[in-house]
Design a protein around this nucleic acid. Structure first.
Length: 744
DNA sequence: TCCGCGCGTATTTTT
DNA sequence: TACGCGCGGA
């Protein structure tokens, strides 16, 4: 068993302990994935049928990676393991047995956007104040309830929830919750939370179904156990109840998803629920230098809520942690880009050795600019995912509706896309009529002349006929041919093609990329079901990390991403940027000790991504929400063992900077007198124009935006200029006429 | 019904 | 900044 070689003793124990409950507490960089991989390989090697193994992860990426690594040890059998995210595995189960709850095999999965749109509609229909009942707020309330397995019935009968909502002036949330659920059910749709919630209901109310899976899965494994919520934990526990072979792997110090219902308590519950469990600690870190491990330990030690753990490493001492202070967010980005540039030269590093990690997606922009200026290749992970782009969602909505005519959100998306003269008024009428005659929206569409009449009926009837033809295409053709037909005949492709703007071109390419993806799906011999429905199931649970690999991505590139999406990854040199109070820790997370500790764990995750070198940066002023804000260094910086930070590189404000700052402050003082003016671009507008603020020029009016709009007293009174803050630092104040404008 | 404009507001993380 | 919404004219 050569795969057991090279493992340390606790790792080996974790691999060979296959029978009975097992809890592996795995510190950062302790070879957790390796252990899980070998453990599954070990099972298969000893004759366990891959179909009897269930391995649950949180991301598709983790699942795929593990599958690949297992395949290297055991070969093609790896593909038969039930391995995937909680959501995808439970979706699979619900596709098979969901009819017991009244759903068909083709149920739709609503993403967060769909859910919020539905809530928005409900709030409108109930005539509630949409300032008070914001979709995001209501949704998070409902989601929280579902993750704690509280049904709308329970929510509405338990006075505690009501009292809680009333104290926030939102007494109607329970009602919205109920209507929301009813509408989802009517649409034959589930949101993300329903995939877990309904699996629980299925297993609770249909014991024969539960029994089937309990006997099927002889071995159950859960990765990133610290991120499970109650709903997920209960399902896994039930599934393992017969064979009791449940292994969970996690690290309480890396629990960063409490905000969406993850509960570290589950680790304690596990110990309570399985008193005979074997507990194994993986404490040796193979990833990082001594310095980095020590820094991480010193930070996490400030948390009260944690399991005792002693993470150590046999690796070299390594370089000290670098702390960079910048005058602005733009300068921060320049310093990072510069230091990557230099290090690439000196140490012969690849772009892919570097990662820039930040707290919020919005921070990526300045770094992109700075890296572009130095011609450094980068890729941004996350942000708007491929599948969340409008053009993709539009086409997918056609797929969804052709497959499931009850899918209300898909219907709303496409009924007037491309424009066919069906506006909000008509849509509202369709819904009213459907309710009145107690028929479905689809029935109304199919009999538009009867139910709606008038001019618009023809458009609706044509639309219904179109969908029927798509329905047929899906039944008869493979996913690619059906998708092609829908893209063409719907008119979406044509509309995008005709848009020759830069964005339009990108949108068209995106749709092409989706179609290519479908082609690959069809051509892949591992996919036995080649229908469009099967493809849809694949992608409805994909998210930002799982974008189709473009050729750009394959090239050597610096990675830019949020700390959250960096979990599980490692890089030689990591930059953690924006280390400022209110940004990291986030302003919204300093309310309670628990929240602050979650932010601290997030910082811990960030530090432990680094193998050889870690650089922390912060700026003393930063654009936020179109304003310039002074920033304090993050409290987390003080929590690092000072011995790990040998030198503090700081950029002291030079006298020039002070002068500029004073100058800007004096400008700020006059903002109150800013008057609104309409500007129009001048015909000779040149974006690259730059000039210096010459002596004797004086600023008369200004307006804060991204930079300042100034009116300068000088040769040309009518001229307005825009000043770029981040370009100061020269002897003279550099004015960038990025938007030179002439008075209306 | 559609389109464009102007205003106001939002800004955390993601399966 | 940048996005969404509401309003008013075509």
């Amino acid at each position: 068993m050569e795969y057991l070689e090279g493992l340390n003793e606790p790792q080996r124990q974790a691999v060979i302990h296959t029978e009975g409950p097992l809890m592996i507490i795995a510190g950062a960089g302790s070879g957790k994935t390796r252990v899980l991989t070998y453990r599954i390989a070990h099972l298969i090697y000893h004759g366990v049928d891959p179909y009897q193994i269930l391995a649950l992860t949180f991301t598709n990426k983790a699942a795929n990676e593990m599958r690949e690594r297992i395949a290297k040890v055991v070969g093609h059998e790896a593909k038969n393991i039930w391995m995937g995210t909680f959501h995808s595995i439970f979706a699979k189960i619900l596709r098979i047995d969901g009819h017991r709850l009244g759903y068909t095999r083709d149920f739709s999965i609503y993403d967060t956007e769909d859910s919020k749109n539905l809530i928005k509609n409900i709030v409108k229909e109930l005539n509630l104040d949409d300032k008070l009942y914001k979709p995001a707020v209501v949704f998070s309330r409902i989601s929280g309830a579902k993750n704690r397995l509280i049904s709308y019935r329970e929510y509405n009968t338990n006075p505690i929830y009501r009292a809680d909502d009333e104290s926030y002036q939102r007494p109607e949330i329970g009602k919205i919750y109920q209507i929301y659920q009813e509408r989802l059910f009517k649409a034959n749709a589930m949101d993300f939370d329903d995939l877990l919630f309904n699996t629980n209901v299925l297993f609770r109310d249909h014991l024969d179904v539960l029994n089937k899976y309990q006997h099927k899965f002889r071995y159950v494994m859960v990765d990133e156990f610290q991120d499970t919520n109650v709903s997920q934990y209960l399902i896994t526990r039930k599934l393992a109840a017969v064979h009791q072979n449940i292994a969970v792997v996690g690290d309480d110090a890396q629990s960063i998803y409490a905000f969406r219902g993850a509960d570290i308590q589950n680790i304690l519950n596990f110990e309570r629920d399985y008193p005979n469990l074997k507990a194994i600690r993986l404490e040796q870190n193979y990833r990082s230098t001594k310095t980095i491990v020590q820094a991480a330990n010193s930070v996490i030690a400030k948390n009260q809520a944690q399991l005792k753990k002693n993470v150590w490493t046999a690796n070299a001492e390594g370089e000290a942690i670098e702390l960079l202070k910048a005058a602005s967010d733009a300068e921060e980005a320049r310093m990072v880009a510069q230091s990557i540039f230099e290090e690439k030269m000196q140490k012969k590093r690849k772009n892919s050795d570097f990662a820039i990690l930040y707290r919020t997606n919005a921070q990526s922009r300045t770094f992109e600019e700075a890296l572009r200026k130095l011609n450094l290749r980068y890729k941004v992970v996350g942000g708007l995912s491929f599948y969340q782009r409008k053009e993709i969602k539009d086409l997918v909505a056609y797929f969804r509706f052709a497959l499931n005519q009850n899918d209300e959100e898909a219907f709303r998306r496409i009924i007037n896309l491309p424009k066919r003269g069906v506006g909000d008024a008509t849509i509202a009428r369709i819904v009213v009529v459907a309710n009145e005659y107690k028929v479905s929206i689809w029935d109304v569409l199919c009999n538009a002349f009867k139910y709606i009449g008038g001019r618009v009926a023809l458009a609706l009837d044509t639309f219904a006929t179109l969908i029927k033809s798509f329905k047929m295409a899906i039944e008869q053709k493979n996913a690619y041919d059906a998708a092609m037909e829908i893209a063409k005949n719907s008119g979406l492709l044509k509309e995008l093609y005709e848009d020759k703007s830069i964005e339009g071109l990108a949108r068209y390419e995106n749709v092409q990329e989706l179609l290519n993806g479908i082609k690959e799906f069809v051509d892949n011999p591992e996919n036995t079901d080649k229908s469009l429905g099967a493809f849809l199931q694949e992608i409805s649970l994909l998210t930002n990390a799982d974008e189709p690999e473009s050729e750009e991505d394959n090239k050597d590139a610096i990675t830019l991403m949020t700390i959250h999406s960096a979990k599980g990854l490692e890089f030689k040199h990591v930059f953690v940027v924006g280390m400022e109070e209110d940004l990291f820790p986030s302003q919204m997370m300093i309310g309670s000790r628990a929240e602050l500790e979650e932010e601290r764990r997030l910082f811990y995750v960030a530090i432990t991504r680094a193998e050889e070198k870690l650089t922390l940066t912060y700026a003393t002023s930063r654009y936020r929400f179109g304003r310039i804000k002074d920033c304090e260094p993050s409290r987390f910086l003080d929590e690092i063992d000072p011995r790990c930070i040998k030198q503090k590189k700081t950029i002291l404000p030079s006298s020039d900077r002070v002068a500029v700052k004073n100058f800007l402050n004096s400008l700020q003082a006059t903002t109150a007198q800013t008057q609104k003016t309409t500007y129009k671009p001048s015909p000779d507008f040149k974006p690259s124009d730059t000039t210096y603020l010459a002596p004797g020029m004086r600023v008369e009016h200004l307006k804060f935006g991204f930079g300042l709009v100034l009116e300068i007293q000088g040769e040309d009174k009518e001229r307005k200029a825009r000043i770029q803050f981040d370009d100061f630092g020269e002897k003279t104040l550099l004015l960038s006429f990025a938007k030179l404008k002439v008075h209306g």
